[in-house]
Design a protein around this nucleic acid. Structure first.
Lengths: 130, 130
DNA sequence: GTTTGCGGTGGAGTGCACTCCAACTTCTAG
DNA sequence: CTAGAAGTTGGAGTGCACTCCACCGCAAAC
């Protein structure tokens, strides 16, 4: 059955991608419209057909999002990606900066976690005395 | 000059609290209006006078906020506080749950951080070969 | 072939957490 | 006493990241 087709056999519909990523179909379309996901391949009738490369990029973009990168910055990164090899250094710089911010964020969260633990200890003490 | 005044000597104006906490004056008023900060003492002419206890609570509320607690949940916690000792167990339960969520969040961020590191390594490899 | 339903588009609407504004009062410095 | 800075309130406006809607075309199942 394998033959020379325009699309590389295994592509997913928007609903399948939504299920795999946890994003809604609307959000997938919104991301694409925003230039955050490169234009996805279409079937003859104009329906989105997500390829493996699309899924890899979406997964990575979600890591950026989940670590607090704004849509605007993700757009910037996606734009650099479309710019090809000449933008590698700039993309690396963005990632390094984002990584550093993430490290600081984790450190702050851990400090706040310790303060929370103290407060929890305090409340536990109150309950024992009652 | 020390005398028997209704307010315990050392109180701060809204601008001073804004400077100390990094919140804007508008945000401090918004939090109070939302019931997130208990009604703050007022001067004879109706101006807010923040006492030490107010500052302590604001500091703690900011830790809740910075660790991702919603305004709605912070309102709930503040309401329990106003409910007095009988709400201690419920407040403790909220804090424990929030702490558990924070632990999960930190774990996820660390995993994403490792993925970011891998991506950064990849980009560094690309740059060396050029 | 028609019903059911998935997918497309453009654009409007939502929820959250602020942020700004207008109109007014009060405090402080000169 | 007066100018200007700082404070008050209620309510409107903002930015972000979605989320929903109406209406249309195409597809798949019966």
């Amino acid at each position: 059955m394998a033959s020379a087709m325009p699309l590389p056999a295994a592509t997913l519909t928007i609903t399948e991608v939504a299920e795999r990523t946890g994003l809604s179909r609307d959000t997938l379309r919104y991301y694409e419209k925003a230039g955050l996901i490169d234009a996805v391949g279409r079937s003859a009738s104009g329906r989105r057909r997500y390829a493996a490369a699309d899924l890899d990029w979406i997964d990575f973009a979600l890591r950026l999002r989940d670590t607090g990168m704004s849509i605007a910055d993700m757009q910037r990164f996606a734009e650099l990606r479309r710019g090809g090899d000449s933008t590698t250094a700039e993309r690396l710089a963005m990632l390094r900066e984002h990584r550093a911010a993430l490290t600081r964020r984790i450190r702050d969260l851990e400090a706040n976690g310790r303060a929370l633990d103290d407060k929890i200890d305090h409340y536990e003490g109150l309950l024992e005395d009652s």
